[in-house]
């Protein structure tokens, strides 16, 4: 081993390390290169706030899909946040050993099930169920958010649980020694102290919901409209790309990349917010990781 070889190895490793950055720059480069022409020729504001998406007439407004994506995501958070936070508290504080041994792999498996399988389950079980219960086609914003709820549960549960468990044990002892009940201790001390981690968990769950494609396509109905109720079908940004890329040409093709730009920007905003909370997420080995 010469000094020269050592030097080469270090430089080689450095290149593998900066590869993540290179890949991101490449992704940004190519998405923008293909997407910007559509925004330029159709008009940036028209593209974002246009209500009409009909490529055959040259209309490329994605506003209904932005609303669709946001609507599905917020609705799924509404269901997923309470359930996953309760479940995280249960895991971190209440669950006896045997229950933990059951619940942990359950959460890992939930995280590992392919999104197509979730979509398929939604299509076969949830859509007919919603059709019978609430009328309409069964394909709706609500149906999509219920499927997404299950998909983001593991993300929020595992990161929140980790945040709760990293609250110093001394806080818990101090509260119990004052004669607080276990629940008072959880509610007034542990939970507030874990807030930064819990917000990170919710934001990462949100990211997963915004980015999910196929499971949403299979149950959301994919109509480009502003929904009047949660029982109306909607189309998400991700679905728009997956549905039409197969046959898009010309400006249509560019407009789909431009849809990708919007999606990319939404994810970056979420990441920046998550970083603002400085919560150092532990890499959870064995599932539950975004």
């Amino acid at each position: 081993m010469t000094k020269y070889e050592e030097f080469l190895i270090e430089k080689g490793l450095f290149i593998t390390a900066i590869l993540s950055i290179i890949v991101i720059l490449l992704i940004i480069g190519f998405i923008f290169k293909e997407g910007l022409p559509a925004m330029e020729s159709y008009g940036f504001l028209n593209f974002i706030f246009g209500m009409d998406w009909s490529p055959s007439d040259g209309q490329y407004g994605v506003f209904t899909m932005i609303i669709g994506s946001i609507g599905i995501t917020l609705l799924s958070l509404l269901f997923a946040v309470p359930l996953s936070l309760l479940c995280a508290i249960f895991l971190a504080e209440i669950a006896p050993k045997t229950m933990k041994r059951i619940l942990k792999p359950v959460i890992e498996t939930l995280a590992g099930i392919p999104s197509v399988v979730y979509g398929f389950f939604g299509l076969i079980i949830l859509v007919p169920f919603m059709r019978v219960q609430f009328g309409g086609t069964g394909f709706s914003m609500l149906t999509a958010s219920l499927i997404l709820t299950v998909m983001i549960l593991p993300t929020i549960i595992s990161i929140s649980e980790d945040a709760l468990k990293s609250v110093p044990h001394e806080y818990k002892e101090a509260s119990l020694a004052l004669g607080a009940t276990h629940w008072q201790t959880i509610k007034n001390v542990l939970f507030p102290a874990a807030i930064p981690g819990i917000i990170t968990a919710i934001i990462l769950g949100m990211g997963r919901a915004v980015g999910e494609t196929l499971a949403v396509i299979m149950v959301a109905g994919n109509v480009t409209q502003i929904p009047n109720s949660i029982f109306d079908p909607v189309r998400a940004l991700t679905s728009n790309i997956a549905l039409e890329m197969g046959y898009a040409t010309g400006l249509h093709y560019n407009a789909l990349f431009a849809t990708g730009i919007i999606l990319f920007i939404m994810i970056i905003i979420l990441l920046v917010i998550a970083n603002y909370f400085h919560y150092k997420k532990k890499v959870v080995i064995g599932g539950g990781y975004l």
Partner: peptide, 28 residues
Amino acid sequence: TIVKLIRFGAETLASIPSIVFGLFGLAF
């Protein structure tokens, strides 16, 4: 700084929606 940037890069890469990877793969 470069290490922080690499970590942020990996984190970002992990959060990019799969359909955006799809777009990139198609173009690249």
